[in-house]
Amino acid sequence: MKHTIFVVGYLVVMGGLIVTLDVLFLREHFWWRLGTNIGIVVVFAVAYLLWLKKVFT
């Protein structure tokens, strides 16, 4: 149960970061926005797979 709550919170933080950057800085730049969003998702995925997943196993 703790793992599920953590993952949901992690995804909410990632989504909030993506939306905030899109709205504040990258509204008019489609390709920069797309690249930034993909980069954020990759960084969050790597952080989860390398470090945070070990906490719950």
Score class of each variant (00 low, 15 high):
Val13Ser: 07
Tyr10Arg: 00
Ala45Pro: 05
Gly16Tyr: 07
Thr20Ala: 10
Tyr10Trp: 07
Leu49Glu: 08
Tyr10Phe: 11
Leu52Thr: 03
Val12His: 02
Phe6Pro: 15
Leu49Phe: 08
Val42Asp: 02
Asn37Pro: 11
Ala47Ser: 08
Lys53Gly: 02
Tyr10Pro: 11
Lys53Ala: 13
Lys2Gln: 15
Arg33Asn: 09
Asp22Ile: 05
Ala47Arg: 00
Leu17Thr: 14
Tyr48Phe: 12
Met1Asp: 12
Asp22Gly: 10
Leu21Trp: 00
Trp51His: 06
Leu11Tyr: 08
Trp31Glu: 09
Leu52Ile: 11
Leu50Thr: 09
Val43Ala: 15
Thr4Tyr: 06
His3Asp: 06
Val55Arg: 11
Leu49Ala: 07
Leu34Ala: 00
Thr57Ile: 13
Asp22Cys: 10
Asn37Tyr: 01
Phe30Ile: 03
Trp31Tyr: 14
Phe30Leu: 09
Leu52Ser: 02
Thr4Ala: 07
Leu50Asn: 07
Thr4Gln: 05
Phe30Val: 04
Trp51Ser: 09
Lys54Cys: 06
Trp32Glu: 11
Leu34Gln: 00
Phe6Asn: 14
Thr36Gly: 10
Val8Tyr: 12
His29Asp: 14
Leu21His: 01
Thr20Glu: 01
Ile40Gln: 06
Leu52Asp: 05
Phe25Pro: 04
Met14Ala: 14
Ala47Asn: 03
Arg33Ala: 04
Val7Gln: 11
Gly35Asp: 03
Phe25Cys: 05
Ile40His: 03
Leu26Asn: 03
Val13His: 05
Gly16Phe: 12
Gly39Cys: 12
His29Val: 11
Ile5Tyr: 06
Val41Tyr: 06
Lys53Asn: 10
Val23Leu: 08
Trp51Gly: 12
Val23Ala: 05
Thr4Asn: 03
Gly15Glu: 07
Val23His: 02
Val46Leu: 12
Asp22Phe: 09
Asn37Val: 11
Leu17Ile: 15
His3Val: 08
Lys54Ser: 14
Thr36Pro: 12
Tyr48Arg: 00
Ala47Gln: 01
Ala45Met: 09
Val23Asn: 03
Arg27Ser: 15
Leu49Lys: 02
Ile38Trp: 00
Trp32Ser: 12
Val43Phe: 15
Phe25His: 02
Val46His: 01
Ile18Lys: 01
Lys53Met: 08
Leu49Arg: 02
Ala45Asn: 04
Arg33Leu: 04
Ile38Asp: 02
Ile5Ser: 12
His29Ile: 10
Leu52His: 05
Val43Lys: 06
Lys53Pro: 02
Met14Ser: 08
Gly35Pro: 09
Phe44Ala: 10
Tyr10Asp: 03
Phe56Met: 10
Leu50Tyr: 03
Met14Thr: 06
Phe56Trp: 15
Lys53Val: 14
Glu28Arg: 10
Ile38Pro: 09
Val23Glu: 05
Val42Ser: 04
His3Trp: 02
His3Ile: 08
Tyr48Cys: 03
Ile5Ala: 14
Gly9Val: 01
Arg27Lys: 15
Ala47Phe: 04
Arg33Pro: 07
Val7Thr: 12
Leu52Gln: 08
Phe30Ala: 05
Lys2Glu: 15
Val55Tyr: 13
Thr4Asp: 10
Gly35Thr: 01
Val43Trp: 11
Arg27Ala: 15
Phe25Ala: 09
Ala45Leu: 13
Phe56Tyr: 14
Asn37Glu: 10
Phe56Val: 10
Phe25Lys: 03
Phe25Asp: 00
Phe25Leu: 11
